[in-house]
Design a protein around this nucleic acid. Structure first.
Length: 325
DNA sequence: CACTCATTTATGTCGCAGCT
DNA sequence: AGCTGCGACATAAATGAGTG
Protein backbone atom coordinates (compact mmCIF):
# COMPACT_ATOMS: atom_id res chain seq x y z
CA UNK A 1 0.00 0.00 0.00
CA UNK A 2 2.82 2.31 0.77
CA UNK A 3 4.04 1.50 -2.65
CA UNK A 4 0.92 2.71 -4.35
CA UNK A 5 1.08 5.95 -2.53
CA UNK A 6 4.59 6.26 -3.69
CA UNK A 7 3.57 5.92 -7.29
CA UNK A 8 0.76 8.36 -6.84
CA UNK A 9 3.28 10.60 -5.33
CA UNK A 10 5.66 10.42 -8.17
CA UNK A 11 3.01 11.52 -10.58
CA UNK A 12 2.45 14.63 -8.60
CA UNK A 13 6.05 15.24 -8.17
CA UNK A 14 6.32 17.61 -11.06
CA UNK A 15 3.25 19.71 -10.47
CA UNK A 16 2.22 19.88 -6.86
CA UNK A 17 4.17 21.65 -4.22
CA UNK A 18 4.91 19.42 -1.27
CA UNK A 19 3.01 21.46 1.23
CA UNK A 20 -0.33 21.24 -0.47
CA UNK A 21 0.04 17.61 -1.10
CA UNK A 22 1.31 16.26 2.14
CA UNK A 23 -1.81 16.57 4.28
CA UNK A 24 -3.88 14.86 1.64
CA UNK A 25 -1.50 12.01 1.58
CA UNK A 26 -1.15 11.57 5.28
CA UNK A 27 -4.83 11.25 5.74
CA UNK A 28 -5.11 7.78 4.35
CA UNK A 29 -1.84 6.25 5.28
CA UNK A 30 -1.62 4.52 8.58
CA UNK A 31 1.74 5.87 9.55
CA UNK A 32 2.97 8.59 11.77
CA UNK A 33 3.21 11.91 10.00
CA UNK A 34 6.87 12.01 10.74
CA UNK A 35 7.68 8.96 8.70
CA UNK A 36 5.55 10.17 5.87
CA UNK A 37 7.34 13.43 5.92
CA UNK A 38 10.79 11.94 5.72
CA UNK A 39 9.77 9.50 3.12
CA UNK A 40 8.36 12.29 1.06
CA UNK A 41 11.41 14.35 1.53
CA UNK A 42 13.57 11.63 0.14
CA UNK A 43 11.28 11.19 -2.78
CA UNK A 44 11.40 14.82 -3.66
CA UNK A 45 15.12 14.97 -3.46
CA UNK A 46 16.22 15.44 -7.04
CA UNK A 47 19.54 13.94 -6.18
CA UNK A 48 18.04 10.62 -5.21
CA UNK A 49 17.21 7.70 -7.43
CA UNK A 50 20.06 8.22 -9.81
CA UNK A 51 21.04 4.66 -10.49
CA UNK A 52 24.55 3.42 -10.71
CA UNK A 53 27.67 5.44 -10.40
CA UNK A 54 29.70 6.00 -13.49
CA UNK A 55 33.45 5.66 -13.39
CA UNK A 56 33.74 9.40 -13.33
CA UNK A 57 31.29 9.81 -10.49
CA UNK A 58 33.23 7.32 -8.47
CA UNK A 59 36.48 9.07 -9.07
CA UNK A 60 35.02 12.40 -8.20
CA UNK A 61 33.60 10.96 -5.05
CA UNK A 62 36.93 9.59 -3.99
CA UNK A 63 38.62 12.85 -4.67
CA UNK A 64 36.14 14.96 -2.81
CA UNK A 65 36.27 12.62 0.11
CA UNK A 66 40.00 12.94 0.39
CA UNK A 67 39.53 16.66 0.26
CA UNK A 68 36.58 17.12 2.54
CA UNK A 69 36.59 14.05 4.73
CA UNK A 70 33.21 12.63 5.60
CA UNK A 71 31.18 15.66 4.88
CA UNK A 72 28.67 13.68 2.91
CA UNK A 73 26.23 16.45 2.51
CA UNK A 74 28.63 18.70 0.69
CA UNK A 75 30.12 15.89 -1.27
CA UNK A 76 26.66 14.78 -2.24
CA UNK A 77 25.90 18.18 -3.62
CA UNK A 78 29.09 18.19 -5.58
CA UNK A 79 28.45 14.93 -7.34
CA UNK A 80 24.69 15.43 -7.47
CA UNK A 81 23.73 12.53 -5.27
CA UNK A 82 22.01 12.30 -1.96
CA UNK A 83 24.27 12.28 1.05
CA UNK A 84 23.10 8.81 1.92
CA UNK A 85 24.00 7.44 -1.41
CA UNK A 86 27.39 9.03 -1.36
CA UNK A 87 28.24 7.75 2.09
CA UNK A 88 27.23 4.23 1.24
CA UNK A 89 29.07 4.22 -2.01
CA UNK A 90 32.20 5.35 -0.32
CA UNK A 91 32.04 2.60 2.25
CA UNK A 92 31.80 0.20 -0.62
CA UNK A 93 34.75 1.40 -2.59
CA UNK A 94 37.20 2.53 0.01
CA UNK A 95 40.17 0.25 0.32
CA UNK A 96 38.03 -2.85 0.27
CA UNK A 97 38.40 -6.05 -1.61
CA UNK A 98 36.14 -6.94 -4.41
CA UNK A 99 35.62 -10.02 -6.47
CA UNK A 100 35.68 -13.57 -5.25
CA UNK A 101 36.18 -14.26 -1.60
CA UNK A 102 39.43 -15.86 -0.62
CA UNK A 103 39.41 -18.82 1.67
CA UNK A 104 40.75 -16.94 4.62
CA UNK A 105 38.29 -14.15 4.15
CA UNK A 106 35.49 -16.65 4.20
CA UNK A 107 36.78 -18.21 7.36
CA UNK A 108 37.02 -14.83 8.94
CA UNK A 109 33.48 -14.09 7.95
CA UNK A 110 32.11 -17.25 9.46
CA UNK A 111 33.98 -16.63 12.63
CA UNK A 112 32.84 -13.04 12.77
CA UNK A 113 29.22 -13.98 12.31
CA UNK A 114 29.48 -16.59 15.00
CA UNK A 115 30.98 -14.13 17.42
CA UNK A 116 28.45 -11.47 16.71
CA UNK A 117 25.58 -13.86 17.14
CA UNK A 118 26.94 -15.16 20.41
CA UNK A 119 27.54 -11.70 21.66
CA UNK A 120 23.98 -10.77 21.06
CA UNK A 121 22.48 -13.62 22.98
CA UNK A 122 20.91 -12.87 26.31
CA UNK A 123 22.80 -13.72 29.49
CA UNK A 124 20.26 -16.47 30.05
CA UNK A 125 21.03 -18.11 26.75
CA UNK A 126 24.72 -17.70 27.22
CA UNK A 127 24.39 -19.43 30.52
CA UNK A 128 22.82 -22.37 28.76
CA UNK A 129 25.56 -22.51 26.22
CA UNK A 130 28.11 -22.46 28.95
CA UNK A 131 26.63 -25.27 30.94
CA UNK A 132 26.19 -27.35 27.83
CA UNK A 133 29.83 -26.85 27.04
CA UNK A 134 30.82 -27.99 30.46
CA UNK A 135 28.75 -31.14 30.18
CA UNK A 136 30.82 -32.70 27.51
CA UNK A 137 33.48 -31.79 25.07
CA UNK A 138 31.40 -32.21 21.95
CA UNK A 139 27.95 -32.00 23.37
CA UNK A 140 25.28 -30.73 21.08
CA UNK A 141 25.19 -27.01 21.01
CA UNK A 142 22.25 -25.85 19.07
CA UNK A 143 20.98 -22.59 17.80
CA UNK A 144 17.53 -21.36 16.95
CA UNK A 145 17.02 -21.00 13.27
CA UNK A 146 16.17 -17.35 13.19
CA UNK A 147 19.30 -16.29 14.94
CA UNK A 148 21.25 -17.44 11.96
CA UNK A 149 20.03 -14.69 9.73
CA UNK A 150 17.94 -12.24 11.67
CA UNK A 151 19.12 -9.32 13.71
CA UNK A 152 22.77 -9.76 12.99
CA UNK A 153 24.75 -6.60 13.30
CA UNK A 154 26.45 -6.45 9.98
CA UNK A 155 28.41 -3.43 10.86
CA UNK A 156 30.08 -5.38 13.61
CA UNK A 157 30.76 -8.20 11.23
CA UNK A 158 32.27 -5.78 8.79
CA UNK A 159 34.59 -4.48 11.48
CA UNK A 160 35.80 -7.96 12.23
CA UNK A 161 36.23 -9.08 8.67
CA UNK A 162 37.90 -5.82 7.73
CA UNK A 163 38.42 -6.47 4.07
CA UNK A 164 34.78 -6.31 3.04
CA UNK A 165 31.93 -4.00 3.67
CA UNK A 166 28.84 -5.10 5.49
CA UNK A 167 26.75 -5.64 2.46
CA UNK A 168 29.23 -7.94 0.88
CA UNK A 169 29.43 -9.83 4.14
CA UNK A 170 25.74 -10.24 4.28
CA UNK A 171 25.31 -11.62 0.79
CA UNK A 172 28.16 -13.97 1.29
CA UNK A 173 26.76 -15.21 4.55
CA UNK A 174 23.39 -15.94 3.01
CA UNK A 175 25.14 -17.99 0.43
CA UNK A 176 27.16 -19.97 2.94
CA UNK A 177 24.23 -20.42 5.22
CA UNK A 178 22.00 -21.70 2.49
CA UNK A 179 24.53 -24.33 1.64
CA UNK A 180 24.97 -25.42 5.19
CA UNK A 181 21.33 -25.43 6.06
CA UNK A 182 20.55 -27.63 3.13
CA UNK A 183 23.52 -29.82 3.71
CA UNK A 184 24.94 -28.98 0.35
CA UNK A 185 22.09 -30.47 -1.57
CA UNK A 186 21.36 -28.79 -4.86
CA UNK A 187 17.95 -27.59 -4.06
CA UNK A 188 17.43 -25.39 -7.01
CA UNK A 189 19.00 -27.45 -9.70
CA UNK A 190 17.52 -29.32 -12.63
CA UNK A 191 14.41 -31.22 -11.69
CA UNK A 192 14.48 -29.93 -8.17
CA UNK A 193 14.75 -26.42 -9.41
CA UNK A 194 11.72 -26.82 -11.59
CA UNK A 195 9.80 -28.43 -8.81
CA UNK A 196 10.77 -25.59 -6.52
CA UNK A 197 9.61 -23.00 -9.00
CA UNK A 198 6.32 -24.73 -9.51
CA UNK A 199 5.81 -24.99 -5.79
CA UNK A 200 6.70 -21.40 -5.27
CA UNK A 201 4.27 -20.12 -7.85
CA UNK A 202 1.48 -22.27 -6.55
CA UNK A 203 2.07 -21.16 -3.02
CA UNK A 204 2.23 -17.52 -3.98
CA UNK A 205 -0.99 -17.84 -5.87
CA UNK A 206 -2.68 -19.52 -2.99
CA UNK A 207 -1.80 -17.01 -0.33
CA UNK A 208 -3.34 -14.34 -2.47
CA UNK A 209 -1.88 -11.15 -1.09
CA UNK A 210 -1.97 -7.67 -2.53
CA UNK A 211 1.59 -6.71 -2.07
CA UNK A 212 5.06 -8.08 -1.66
CA UNK A 213 5.48 -6.79 1.82
CA UNK A 214 2.63 -8.90 3.10
CA UNK A 215 4.40 -12.09 2.21
CA UNK A 216 5.81 -14.27 4.91
CA UNK A 217 8.94 -15.48 3.19
CA UNK A 218 9.87 -17.59 6.11
CA UNK A 219 6.74 -19.60 5.65
CA UNK A 220 7.12 -19.75 1.92
CA UNK A 221 10.59 -21.17 2.20
CA UNK A 222 9.22 -24.65 2.65
CA UNK A 223 8.27 -24.56 -1.02
CA UNK A 224 11.92 -24.80 -1.89
CA UNK A 225 13.41 -26.46 1.11
CA UNK A 226 15.09 -25.53 4.29
CA UNK A 227 16.54 -22.21 3.22
CA UNK A 228 16.79 -18.72 4.62
CA UNK A 229 13.94 -16.43 3.66
CA UNK A 230 16.16 -14.09 1.74
CA UNK A 231 17.00 -16.95 -0.54
CA UNK A 232 13.37 -17.35 -1.47
CA UNK A 233 13.02 -13.69 -2.13
CA UNK A 234 15.90 -13.71 -4.51
CA UNK A 235 14.45 -16.64 -6.33
CA UNK A 236 11.12 -14.99 -6.67
CA UNK A 237 12.72 -11.87 -7.97
CA UNK A 238 14.46 -13.92 -10.60
CA UNK A 239 11.36 -15.80 -11.55
CA UNK A 240 9.48 -12.64 -12.10
CA UNK A 241 12.22 -10.99 -14.07
CA UNK A 242 12.78 -13.89 -16.40
CA UNK A 243 9.23 -14.97 -17.10
CA UNK A 244 6.97 -11.98 -16.78
CA UNK A 245 7.22 -9.45 -19.56
CA UNK A 246 6.97 -5.82 -18.45
CA UNK A 247 6.76 -6.91 -14.88
CA UNK A 248 7.88 -3.49 -13.83
CA UNK A 249 4.65 -2.04 -15.07
CA UNK A 250 2.52 -4.65 -13.40
CA UNK A 251 1.04 -4.79 -9.96
CA UNK A 252 1.89 -7.64 -7.70
CA UNK A 253 -1.35 -9.57 -8.21
CA UNK A 254 -0.98 -9.15 -11.93
CA UNK A 255 2.46 -10.63 -11.78
CA UNK A 256 1.30 -13.57 -9.76
CA UNK A 257 -1.59 -14.18 -12.08
CA UNK A 258 0.69 -14.17 -15.04
CA UNK A 259 3.05 -16.58 -13.39
CA UNK A 260 0.21 -18.84 -12.44
CA UNK A 261 -1.69 -18.80 -15.68
CA UNK A 262 1.09 -18.64 -18.20
CA UNK A 263 4.36 -19.68 -16.69
CA UNK A 264 3.19 -22.47 -14.46
CA UNK A 265 1.81 -24.72 -17.21
CA UNK A 266 5.00 -24.18 -19.13
CA UNK A 267 7.16 -25.19 -16.24
CA UNK A 268 5.01 -28.15 -15.44
CA UNK A 269 5.34 -29.43 -18.95
CA UNK A 270 9.06 -29.06 -18.82
CA UNK A 271 9.12 -30.83 -15.53
CA UNK A 272 7.22 -33.79 -16.86
CA UNK A 273 9.50 -34.16 -19.80
CA UNK A 274 12.49 -34.05 -17.61
CA UNK A 275 11.13 -36.66 -15.29
CA UNK A 276 10.45 -39.04 -18.13
CA UNK A 277 13.95 -38.71 -19.35
CA UNK A 278 15.88 -39.09 -16.21
CA UNK A 279 13.58 -41.17 -14.15
CA UNK A 280 12.21 -39.63 -11.05
CA UNK A 281 14.63 -38.61 -8.47
CA UNK A 282 12.86 -35.72 -7.01
CA UNK A 283 13.62 -34.61 -3.55
CA UNK A 284 10.75 -33.50 -1.50
CA UNK A 285 11.74 -30.23 0.00
CA UNK A 286 13.05 -30.86 3.45
CA UNK A 287 10.89 -29.68 6.29
CA UNK A 288 12.26 -26.60 7.93
CA UNK A 289 14.16 -27.25 11.07
CA UNK A 290 13.58 -24.89 13.93
CA UNK A 291 16.90 -25.58 15.47
CA UNK A 292 20.30 -26.22 14.03
CA UNK A 293 23.35 -27.68 15.56
CA UNK A 294 26.11 -25.24 16.00
CA UNK A 295 28.61 -27.51 14.49
CA UNK A 296 26.55 -27.96 11.36
CA UNK A 297 26.69 -24.28 10.65
CA UNK A 298 29.88 -22.92 12.09
CA UNK A 299 32.71 -25.05 10.96
CA UNK A 300 35.83 -23.89 9.33
CA UNK A 301 37.01 -26.37 6.81
CA UNK A 302 37.03 -25.15 3.31
CA UNK A 303 33.87 -26.33 1.75
CA UNK A 304 34.53 -23.77 -0.82
CA UNK A 305 33.77 -25.48 -4.03
CA UNK A 306 33.31 -29.06 -4.94
CA UNK A 307 30.85 -31.37 -3.31
CA UNK A 308 29.79 -31.34 0.24
CA UNK A 309 32.60 -32.07 2.53
CA UNK A 310 31.91 -35.23 4.35
CA UNK A 311 30.42 -34.82 7.71
CA UNK A 312 31.56 -37.20 10.30
CA UNK A 313 28.86 -38.56 12.49
CA UNK A 314 25.44 -37.36 11.76
CA UNK A 315 24.21 -35.55 14.80
CA UNK A 316 21.34 -36.89 16.81
CA UNK A 317 18.85 -34.12 17.03
CA UNK A 318 18.56 -32.82 13.59
CA UNK A 319 19.93 -35.07 11.00
CA UNK A 320 16.86 -37.23 10.68
CA UNK A 321 16.43 -36.64 7.02
CA UNK A 322 17.91 -36.93 3.70
CA UNK A 323 14.65 -37.39 2.00
CA UNK A 324 14.98 -39.07 -1.24
CA UNK A 325 12.01 -39.93 -3.35
C1' DC B 1 31.21 -22.47 -29.25
C1' DA B 2 27.20 -19.93 -28.54
C1' DC B 3 23.11 -19.77 -26.01
C1' DT B 4 20.49 -20.23 -21.79
C1' DC B 5 19.75 -20.41 -17.29
C1' DA B 6 21.75 -20.50 -12.38
C1' DT B 7 24.77 -18.61 -9.12
C1' DT B 8 27.53 -15.06 -7.23
C1' DT B 9 28.68 -10.43 -6.63
C1' DA B 10 27.67 -5.42 -6.71
C1' DT B 11 25.02 -1.55 -5.79
C1' DG B 12 21.10 1.16 -5.12
C1' DT B 13 16.71 2.14 -2.17
C1' DC B 14 13.29 1.56 1.88
C1' DG B 15 11.72 2.51 6.33
C1' DC B 16 11.98 2.28 11.22
C1' DA B 17 14.33 3.39 15.65
C1' DG B 18 16.80 6.03 18.27
C1' DC B 19 19.88 10.00 18.97
C1' DT B 20 20.58 15.08 19.42
C1' DA C 1 11.88 18.44 15.15
C1' DG C 2 15.33 17.06 12.43
C1' DC C 3 18.67 13.62 11.40
C1' DT C 4 21.42 9.66 10.95
C1' DG C 5 22.41 4.76 11.17
C1' DC C 6 21.69 0.50 9.53
C1' DG C 7 19.30 -3.90 8.72
C1' DA C 8 16.12 -5.40 5.16
C1' DC C 9 15.20 -5.35 0.44
C1' DA C 10 15.30 -5.28 -4.61
C1' DT C 11 17.57 -5.71 -8.61
C1' DA C 12 21.51 -5.19 -11.93
C1' DA C 13 25.74 -7.04 -13.63
C1' DA C 14 29.32 -10.47 -13.95
C1' DT C 15 30.56 -15.13 -13.93
C1' DG C 16 29.89 -19.99 -14.41
C1' DA C 17 27.78 -24.52 -15.86
C1' DG C 18 25.16 -27.24 -18.84
C1' DT C 19 23.78 -28.40 -23.33
C1' DG C 20 22.58 -28.74 -28.24
Amino acid sequence: MYRDDLDRFKEFKAQAPLITFLPTLGRNIARPWKLIYYRAKKMFDVNNYKGRYSERDTKKLKMYQSLLGNDWKTIGEMVARSSLSVALKFSQISQRNRGAWSKSETQKLIKAVEEVILKKMSPQELEDVDSKLREGPESCLSIVREKLYKGISWVEVEAKVKSRNWMQCKSKWTEILTKRMTNGRCIYHGVNGLRAKVNLIERLYKINVEDTNEIDWEDLASAIGDVPPSYVQTKFSRLKATYVPFWQKKTFPEIIDYLYETTLPLLKEKLEKMMEKKGTEIQTPAAPKQVFLFRDIFYYEDDSEGEDVEKETAAHTCSSTTLRG
